[in-house]
Design a protein around this nucleic acid. Structure first.
Lengths: 342, 342
DNA sequence: AAAAATTACGAAAACGGTTTCGTGTTAATA
DNA sequence: TATTAACACGAAACCGTTTTCGTAATTTTT
């Protein structure tokens, strides 16, 4: 088995110094033509490739970015990830992924692990538990070490970092306004407990739209579910007793669950009840009826997060650190499908 | 901004040598009690953590594994990835993901990139284009460099490496046998063009089951689709003219597409046509009717792939290289749901 | 022909660790 | 008291690069 060849090997074979080899391979003006050609030919013949680790140690940066997300088996996060990976790759960066599993401890441990030299910066969506706890010391520490950090979707304002989010309040407002325009009057909201300001904002948009259109907000029309175990009976009970004629669900999985349940209860969608979900994943496109959904443009979020991060990383390398933080707001869009067609 | 502290910093502050600090932190017997306590206390106070890159360079291994997959926005691959990440993490390894996008070039470039010291081993599912081309030189090179490689799902036998696959032929056979047992007689197959031996094996199982039960194989009952653009009219035409009473689809997306189309054509599922898909993703659970599907146990595949890889990596470190290659076969299972209930 | 400038290369330090080996001090043994 | 052993630590090599600086040998300039 042919081990990887190093500068030292080439130097030994060609009876020149390591420095000469290094320079020759970079086409340095310092080295004579003959020597350069000899070294380059030899390197090519033996397929020399510099060792990334050695270069990282020398340069004090790795061209790796760390991505920490709550869940990878989740359409939204994977699209964001795809956006990150694609852009990062085009810029010569690799991506190390860690899954926090919505656990505070895993998030902390993974980030500490990576922060010890493995990555040049982080892209992060916070674990549910971290949001609940409200403990962001691990992020603050990372920032203190001068490691750039971009948060997306599930973020916090308690840490100095860049952010990429969608216009949750506005789009939620727009959706509900549209439902009202479609002559829906008893509009329900299916949301989750926790998850910080994402859900809060969507709820605020919902309330604002009701208010602005003279409809009363009724807590009875709000169903609050635990994300990780959806209770069918609770949902069925809600729809049997509330007589809503439209529902906004803050995520796709809630929407699809509810859709199935109300259909089993004998309601017709969209005639009896209109449905709108968030995050426009694969389920929305293939459910029956197809689901009207708010596209969060995960690819775009990922790309922008990566752009911002790499910009910070490279500014830091140039020693002109950027001390201001951006919050980029992606415009979500409503994709209308069968579940709201009148 | 407090930069990371190094051994050198501690040594300077405490007026001892770097070696002493290093040994003290590893609780070496060589160092006296007082010195150890002093060093450890200081290190703790300043939150010293060794630099991963420096350790990697010294040890010649990184505790990173490279995962190269065709697509990340794909339920099966994400479940495999989750299995890998979970196990790898529990063993103190990190995971670098590269997406080949089913492109040969991207696969080659990404792997060459990572092979230069960034990772200790690869877990790979081949790009469609690579399978088409039949060019596996990049994998052979990686093996020649002594880098361990585990392939899963889309694999090749032309490279000396470990493999994790499912019992495609058998499970396909079982499924068709079951359909025949359910009194289905005109059983169609929806498969794709390309994708190497995965599709081939599933087709073989299908044929074997027909043959063994005295049913004729009819090429007219086989619909071959391009994975990346599914043509609705072709599918509709197929179902209008063929009068199949059951269909086996080699992946979930084909199944869901076809399911929708036949329902629009006025057929009832499962009464007129029974449907079975592969890979039991999220769509299967939420379609109407729910889809009977072959579970490929992605988590398990990922975990086993990671187990095998890490075993190889660590054996290599101990200098007792393992020169034999395993092919681990995961037993797929059929999850029966609405699309086949009689 | 002497001085200055250019060319072509090598030595060595640096990145941040680990590890082997050598050595001065003290304690135990003959 | 002389010899040996144990203890506690430091120097230095090493991992594979990059880069600064020094310097012979040659060429150019005066």
């Amino acid at each position: 088995m042919r081990r990887k060849i190093t500068l030292k090997d080439i130097a030994r074979e060609l009876e020149v110094s390591i420095s000469t080899v290094s320079k020759a391979l970079k086409n340095s003006e310092e080295i004579g033509r003959d020597t350069k050609e000899k070294v380059q030919a030899f390197a090519k013949l033996y397929n020399y490739k510099p060792n990334n680790i050695a270069i990282s140690l020398k340069n004090k940066h790795t061209r790796n970015i760390g991505v920490v997300i709550p869940d990878i088996v989740h359409h939204f996060f994977t699209t964001v990830f795809r956006g990150i990976e694609k852009y990062a790759n085009s810029r010569g960066y690799n991506v190390i992924v860690c899954v926090s599993d919505d656990s505070f401890n895993k998030e902390v441990i993974n980030m500490e692990m990576l922060a010890n030299g493995s990555i040049d910066g982080f892209i992060l969506s916070l674990a549910a538990e971290t949001l609940d706890k409200g403990d962001f010391n691990h992020l603050k520490q990372i920032r203190e070490q001068g490691i750039p950090l971009v948060c997306f979707d599930r973020t916090t304002t308690e840490v100095d970092c860049d952010r990429v989010i969608i216009n949750d309040t506005d789009i939620s407002f727009e959706v509900v306004k549209k439902l009202i325009g479609d002559n829906r009057r008893k509009i329900g909201l299916v949301t989750n407990v926790g998850f910080g300001d994402v859900s809060d904002k969507r709820e605020r948009g919902y309330k604002n739209a009701l208010e602005e259109n003279g409809l009363p907000f009724d807590e009875n029309l709000v169903l609050r579910l635990a994300y990780h175990d959806v209770e069918e009976e609770v949902i069925a009970e809600f729809f049997k007793s509330r007589e809503v004629d439209a529902v906004l669900c803050v995520n796709e999985i809630f929407a699809i669950h509810c859709l199935g349940i109300v259909q089993n209860l004998g309601y017709s969608v969209p005639d009896d009840i209109a449905f709108v979900g968030f995050s426009d994943g694969i389920l929305s496109k293939f459910s029956r009826p197809t689901l009207t959904s708010v596209a969060q443009h995960g690819d775009q979020m990922g790309q922008i997060a990566a752009e911002i991060l790499i910009e910070k990383i490279e500014a830091e390398l140039e020693e002109n650190e950027i001390e201001t933080y951006r919050t980029e707001i992606i415009q979500a869009t409503l994709i209308e499908r069968g579940s709201t067609r009148n």
